[in-house]
Design a protein around this nucleic acid. Structure first.
Lengths: 229, 229
DNA sequence: TGAGATTTGTACGTATGTATA
DNA sequence: GTATACATACGTACAAATCTC
């Protein structure tokens, strides 16, 4: 950990623990630099981390102010780190098959000689309550070691352990009516309205590694945008 | 404009005009600093703007690389600037009324003695095609000068012209079935699935200034998250 | 495989500009 | 007007990751 990261982590903990009050002022940069025995530039770098994550905002000539909780709770909905943090949640594999790719998938994944795809269905639970269903396809040629066991943990972590670097994740959100296959495991009535997010996860150089259709149990999703920091 | 902003703007134009190829390398920081006659710190600040907006990414020891178009096109879907940029679009006011607030709205807006709300319905068009419908409530005590004429322009700009500072915008996205009132103006069949975004727009100090229900014509919304910059 | 060069990242100190109180 | 506090900018040094020979 670098200095600015350590300071950022500590300041975030202070905010989360309530030491700094929402809308209240923080000590100035000079003061913080003196306290942590670093230069003002380092403090500014740490504060920048807090700004990016929505913990604070500042106004020139005025000071640094602590944001209320909603600012740093809701805004992460659409970041990739969100998917990473879900590792503490339970998973239940409902299906695990190796299939021949359809021509559409073959084209999307730009497959080589091995045309097989891992195709799985996974229910994700939070405190024993199902909240989302994932249907995923991944090329066997990239992930030959993928088994049903792997699904218990984080797929993202598994990909990184293999040495792959995840580059980006395209998401398409749309409204759907829950079909039988999804409604039952999610404990929802058939025909309920719900949100579906289709992920296209890419490795470096635009290599498509995973297509996931994530069907939510609940029909809500929150986001927050902040005008200025 | 500060130096780093000018450099950032110029570099963004170079990327958008295709001078730098997607996935290709940019000149190093030293080279750029020399060319623009500024310090490396200033170049890094400019490059940071490009990173935040998704134009480039960098890797220590390696270099600075230009992202493909999708990175800086899709990712703005959920930023507030998105709403600002829509000023070039046409608007058509379908309804404009001043109403007494219901108890629920009274509570939400934390109204004073004046319990009236402006309530309007606005269709937004892109090249004469309707793409979204907005139903909005705003307190009269905050916006006494708001008229049907104002709706032709940008409401956000109008709010700022009055001297208000917009702080943040909560969004709740959900799936809906299009009702008659929305389906017809959007040229969609009644009962179509669609996405609805409810905005709660706040001024400084958590003053709620606007509630807008934005109903999309199309049932898709794109987002992109990037692992590292 | 390893050593050295290159390139980005971190950190310091200082000076000046600019908005706010 | 004055003081305060954040914002910008410069120059330097070293660390760490990567690339190359």
């Amino acid at each position: 950990m670098t200095k600015y990261q350590e300071i950022a982590t500590e300041l975030i903990n202070l905010i989360r623990s309530g030491t700094y009050r929402p809308w209240g002022a923080m000590e100035g940069e000079h003061m913080l630099a003196k306290r942590y025995q670093v230069s003002r530039a380092t403090i500014r770098k740490a504060l920048n981390v807090l700004k990016e994550q929505g913990y604070i905002h500042s106004r020139q000539g005025s000071g640094i102010y602590v944001n209320p909780e909603e600012f740093y709770q809701e805004r992460l909905v659409f970041t990739m780190s969100d998917r990473y943090r879900r590792t503490s949640l339970d998973s239940k594999a409902l299906k695990f098959k190796i299939e021949e790719a359809t021509p559409e998938f073959d084209k999307l994944f730009n497959l080589g000689s091995d045309k097989r795809l891992v195709h799985y269905l996974r229910l994700r639970l939070f405190e024993k309550n199902p909240f989302t269903m994932e249907e995923t396809w991944m090329p066997v040629e990239l992930f030959p070691s993928l088994t049903k066991e792997t699904l218990k943990g984080s797929i993202m972590k598994y990909m990184e352990e293999l040495g792959y670097v995840i580059s980006h994740d395209f998401k398409t959100i749309s409204a759907v009516v829950l079909a039988d296959q999804y409604a039952k495991p999610l404990h929802k009535p058939i025909g309920s309205l719900s949100l579906q997010i289709t992920h296209h996860v890419y490795l470096l150089k635009s290599v498509l590694a995973q297509i996931t259709i994530e069907t939510q149990g609940d029909n809500v999703m929150n986001a927050l945008s902040v005008r200025e920091q």
